[in-house]
Amino acid sequence: MLELNNLNAGYGPIQAVAGLSLKVAQGEIVTLLGSNGAGKSTTLRSISGLLKQKTGSIVFEGKELLKLPPEKIISRGISQVPEGRRIFGRLTVEENLDVGAYLVRDKAVIRERKEKAFELFPRLAERRRQKGGTLSGGEQQMLAIARALMQAPRLLLLDEPSMGLAPLLVEAIFDIIRQLNSGGTTILLVEQNARMALKVAHRGYVLANGRLTMEGPAAELARNPEVQKAYLGG
């Protein structure tokens, strides 16, 4: 479904990702692991188009995305939940969802998807008229995910969805990820919390200093002594 070939990406003189190739197949949850600055977020930002300084190829459903701006990439069926949630704090919860559905022209479809989002996240339904900025961190994360789902993406990019959340909320977010995946959404997940990520993912890639160091089924990676030492706390 998604295929990265020899992706190089960076910021100014800094090369954050070098020669990265990876694949995500339809229906999978794939996770990108690595320490801070390994190039995980850069990879996601390259796919979604937020990062422009890049070479190589990014092919989604047979079409090249490398040169497209973010607003075109989302229309191909890829949504990103950005790092740090980036919800619109001065818009209400409901307006945030409306922005998420910006490319959906059919009002009935928007309404239907909003209802689905509120079913998935009842907390958001209670706060639909509240400004996004007044939500707690966990609620904001739910809103960021719900917003990304409004466009009914076939591939969902999740950047650090568990960051800064209490353990109980982390569990809840990973439950949602599983639920979305069994509903047919393919997921590419970037996580610092490698333990949780490997539990939910089918396959994983490990990055260090912008390069691929390991790849394989999630269960295998979780057993790998090197991975255990570096990312699972021994």
Partner: peptide, 11 residues
Amino acid sequence: QDPSTAGLMGI
């Protein structure tokens, strides 16, 4: 509020 995130929404 946030032009780059607006871009992610298709704007």
